[in-house]
Design a binder for these strands. Structure first.
Lengths: 196, 196
DNA sequence: TTGGCTATAGACCGGTCAGTCTAGTCTTGA
DNA sequence: TCAAGACTAGACTGACCGGTCTATAGCCAA
């Protein structure tokens, strides 16, 4: 399963993937659209056309374990993507813009219902394992940008701006139903980040 | 009721405010911490120590009407705040930084449970009146920055970056439980915005 | 005192929630 | 061929959800 399978969550994947992957794909797609508390187990089962027994077989920990798996999946995907882009010696600003454009097509494809990253997924209070998983994902992405930018104090600042403009831009764009806002903020941020 | 009452949601306000205001204050505080779907009516009633009848008397539309009122309240508060700051001819970057610092103290006071703005409040799908209310709030704040920055195309870009870095920075900071990330991203954004 | 209005009070309802449990069906390897 | 594990299947449970309903308390005007 790759990130592509998630982007077309239901029809295309149902045939090719195993139940566990289908559950993760559907759960991620739904959580990104409605947040953890906004999605019922029954929604996920309906989307995957699987019975309850399957879900609790693969994820004995229930809803939260499934959500953590979904977060882990998207975290790995994006982390790997960042690693491969940076390995080509691209400038951080260029990588950021590329990621933003991918988010735009994601937003458009889902009719602005999904948040491609993790921002709105949680809305859950402090100590849960789910929140921790989201936190870890953000840390890893931040670290990718930071090292790519040179690992200095200034690099840290710029990495923060990169992710913040991306997450914030997604939030703005999603609400306004216009990817324009995301592109504008990220473009400006990328400009600043590429300055040395 | 002012924005201050919300920041210390329970104890301080209980005595001074009427039931309706107490409901709005508690609802806003809870929604900011756990998102719309993460808060039960019973949570709000418990926080305000009011019976169900009172809530449905003041808000016949139930949970959603209360949430819309809460969004409207914070939208007005911040909009007014922005208007008054810009009226003093402050530079946009300075106003942004000031707002960010207020968000920081807000985050700290709530032990990083609340999102001071609206980003995580929704996690609700497209067409609802609540989503529309949040969208309107963002538009108004965006317009404040845009006009303060001169109303040009470039001003629009900068306004997007301002709000995106703020919303995104809050999201990062909240997850990492460190206001540092918010300050870093907003400071950098403010720098860029103040450039002419 | 009375009548009407605003607001409080909380029992109650049908629906839905996450999660459990038992039974059945595949797959696989000896 | 058969036994054992992996997986599917869905009825069932108790808790909790948002919302409705009736009853009552406080207040001010007639």
């Amino acid at each position: 399963m790759t990130i592509r399978d998630i982007e077309t969550p239901l029809a295309a994947t149902a045939a090719a993937l195993g139940s566990k992957e289908r559950l993760i794909a559907a759960a991620l797609s739904l959580f990104q659209a409605k947040g953890y508390h906004g999605v019922a187990i029954s929604d996920i089962l309906e989307a995957t056309d699987l019975p309850k027994g399957s879900l609790y077989h693969h994820f004995p920990g229930g809803k939260e374990e499934l959500a953590i798996a979904a977060v882990g999946f998207i975290a790995d995907e994006i982390d790997a993507r960042l690693a491969s882009e940076f390995a080509k010696n691209k400038r951080a600003g260029a990588v950021l813009l590329e990621l933003a454009h991918e988010c735009v097509s994601w937003l458009r494809r889902s009719d602005y219902t999904q948040t491609p990253l993790l921002g709105l997924l949680a809305a859950s209070p402090g100590e849960s394992a789910l929140t921790q998983a989201i936190c870890d994902a953000q840390k890893r992405w931040l670290a990718r940008f930071e090292t790519a930018l040179g690992g200095t104090e200034e690099a840290h600042d710029k990495a923060c701006l990169a992710l913040a403009s991306l997450e914030g831009g997604i939030s703005l764009a999603r609400m306004a139903r216009s990817s324009d806002l995301l592109i504008r903020s990220v473009t400006l941020a990328a400009l600043h980040i590429n300055q040395r």
